[in-house]
Design a protein around this nucleic acid. Sequence first.
DNA 1: AAGAAGAGACCGAACGTTCTCCCTCGCGAA
DNA 2: TTCGCGAGGGAGAACGTTCGGTCTCTTCTT
Lengths: 194, 194
Amino acid sequence: MSEGTEGSSTSAPRARLLDTATRIFYAEGIHSVGVDRIISEAQVTRATLYRHFTGKEDLVLAYLDRADRGIRAGIEAARAGEPSAADAVRAIGRFITGGIESTGFRGCAFLNAVAEYPDPAHPIHQAVLAHRQWFLDTVTELLAQVGDRPAEEAGRHFVMLRDGAMASGCLSDPKPIAETFLLGVEGILRARGA
Amino acid sequence: MSEGTEGSSTSAPRARLLDTATRIFYAEGIHSVGVDRIISEAQVTRATLYRHFTGKEDLVLAYLDRADRGIRAGIEAARAGEPSAADAVRAIGRFITGGIESTGFRGCAFLNAVAEYPDPAHPIHQAVLAHRQWFLDTVTELLAQVGDRPAEEAGRHFVMLRDGAMASGCLSDPKPIAETFLLGVEGILRARGA
DNA sequence: AAGAAGAGACCGAACGTTCTCCCTCGCGAA
DNA sequence: TTCGCGAGGGAGAACGTTCGGTCTCTTCTT
């Protein structure tokens, strides 16, 4: 098989495991899914899971880490080549609505996860906080380049709209949600003179 | 909504049960809490729980039903006596930020619950949808009295901001979140000529 | 020969639920 | 007034299932 280019750290069973965990955790939640279900659908044995991960919590962290990397890459790709900071913000907005309107959308993986791990000291909770801080910083930094006023307020506004759109996007028709979100983003940009 | 017991025969053990369930479910989630924990802290026996509720799910529905009634009463009280529709919207906004800034705030009980019950056919999921529909309708109806344009867009905008504020209000300092939310509400009202 | 993976038994604990037994309290009938 | 009876609640055993996790053994590949 063509597995040689992957490197020694990623094996096919491990990839199946992470793929399956990602799919099921995102679609159905974390606490309500047992490891039996995951190893069954990933077609690996119990021992294989515990060979690659220290336990279920480690698998959840790997799931969130992969989601984090994917979103960072998506945001990076979305803003690449945009002629202005305002257009980069718009591109990020379209990236978000693209997710909301895609099939199988079940809300923000991080907001969903933190709802199941409210303890701020828990590693999973902290992983969510780290992702959110990065996103807030990224958006605020970009909005600071639109207009010359401080952008903290605008950044929080953008993230608040995003959180609301992501939370409600899987609870009703996503079309109006996406439209309302993009209108809100335009409002933020307009308030900064873009 | 759930269990057939009328409000007339509210026994002390049943009240302790619902109080305890409300406190623990809201603070720690639903799937991660067992009935052992609830009956232990409520100081009732197993049989008493199943005498008043058909099962854990019924207890969760009763928890959400009580939360729904509380929020409806709170919204009703907040808008009572406000001289204009715009001021009523502002009062609802302050009601929401009051919750966010209160001690023990752990986000929206309904958004947290629906994150654990993504199946749209599940009774708990549907209870969340019903509550959200009522809230959207209430806010939209109020905003329709501010300005003379259709208020569907503004209502969705308000709810989206609220969802974002509730979701992030327990993940970082609630003060800036509350401020950003109220500024957003003022923006919605201003856009409608209030 | 060595390491990864499969197969599956096994563990103690927790899960939601049902069950029996006994005690207490309130209320209507005698 | 007293009796009895049923409902509500306490105490706890027990149900079968599932949980996350560990174990041994074999097979396959390199």
